[in-house]
Structures are given as C-alpha cells and as structure tokens.
Amino acid sequence: MAKTIFRCWSVFLLLAVVGLAHGAERVLKVGVIHHSPPMSYVDASGGLTGFNVEVMRELCKELAARCETVVLTLDRVVDAVAAGEVDFAAVSLLVTPERRARLLLTKPYYRSISVWFARPGVKPGEARVAVVKGGIQARYAQARGWAQLPFDNHEAIFGALATGQAQATLLPMANAVALQQDPRMSAQGLASTVVQDPELAGDAALGVNPRDRALLDKLNDAIDEIKRDGRFDRINTRFIPFRLQ
C-alpha cells in the first residue's frame, strides 16, 4: 500500500515538474548574421541591431521566448536551420523552391528586389561581381557565368568597393540602400540599376527548423501581430527610409 502511494506521489511530482517546465519561458536559438546593414549589424555602441534583429526581438517577445543568438554567415544559414542548429534564423531569405524544400519558411514579411552597383561603364558580366556567399545574388551570378568576388558579408563588399578591390556588386534592396548611403561611396561614383529579374526579386521570409512546425505557426501569428500593432513599422522607420512591402 505504502509503495503504491509512493509511486502515485512520484508520478504526480514528475507530472508537476514537466508541467512547470512546459509553462516556463522557452529558450530559442536564433541564427543571425553580422555586418549586413541595415538588416543585421553591430552599431557604434557594440550592440547587435538592424531591421531583422529588432524584428526578431519583437517576435521573441510575442512568443514569450528567450532568444539566444547564434552568429552565422549567410552561406551557413540554410544548412544551420535545416540541421536544427538554430530554431529559426533572423535573416531575410528570398523564397526559392530549393530553400522551401529544405526549410520551413514563414509567411513573407516583405518583398525584395536586387540592385546592381558598378563603376561607370561596367556592365554585368564584364567585371568580377562582389557577392555574399550563399546569397541569391551569388547564385544568380554563378548561373550566368559571371566572375565573382565572394565575401562573407555585405560590409566586406562595401569595403571592397570603397578600396577599388571590387568594381561591381549585386545586392538585395535593403543592403543596396545602406551601400548608397555609405559615405565612402560618394567618391566612387557608382551607378545603380534595379535589376528587373524574377530570380532576384520576390518574397523574403524567415527560415524555421523543418522539424518545428508549431514554431512556424507561432512565428506566422507573431509576424501578423507585430504588423498589426505597428511594431513592424516602427522598426522599418528606424532602419530603412521607405516602407518595406
């Protein structure tokens, strides 16, 4: 009899502990990239910030989760999310069939285009194009057989353009804005052209661990919520001079 009571108490305590653990704040690992202004970068005070970083923070608040950032390079993002090293990545991924096959992707939170920057007279394919490894632009250049100058991040591209190491680059819209506003670029006289190609434009989404569909649903709801309550627009205003759509 005493043994039965002891077992009952043990099961009860176990359930209670499990229940408490379940009710506790969830810890999420979130992949972020550095040196990709205005989306994700370290500001003057040394803190990680940027449009995607701040959006990620609001999403974590909405999910009532404590988010721990894991720094990745862009070319590692898809692999890391697919392998479950991170729960989701606060990186704008242009939705492609290949990415959709490997990851869960949230609903699009904006749409992006790509911009070609080059020294005057340099046309696509004529010079080595600086691209970030793992980006859609790198794949685009590769598909067209363009000579590439691969970098780990966008700031490295900015530096290469500023020093004359690179003659041209193909960047996502938001990074293009940052490049255009970079004071170092004014002396370069770079010409910009929006590339109207469907391969370089489209929906931007967040990549989610393919084994965590519940998290995907929660993130989708959270994106809707922060768009509805204005938090998304406030972040937009802080980092980009027009509305992302």
Partner: peptide, 20 residues
Amino acid sequence: PAGRQDALFLVHVLSAQPGM
C-alpha cells in the same frame, strides 16, 4: 550631385518596389 544621386537612387528603388 551626390545628394541628387542618392535621391534618384531611392526613386528608382521605390518605383521598382513590388508593392508599388
């Protein structure tokens, strides 16, 4: 000219935005 260039850049980007 730089200021004009900046503004024109944004005009291009805004005009090309999918939302637009």
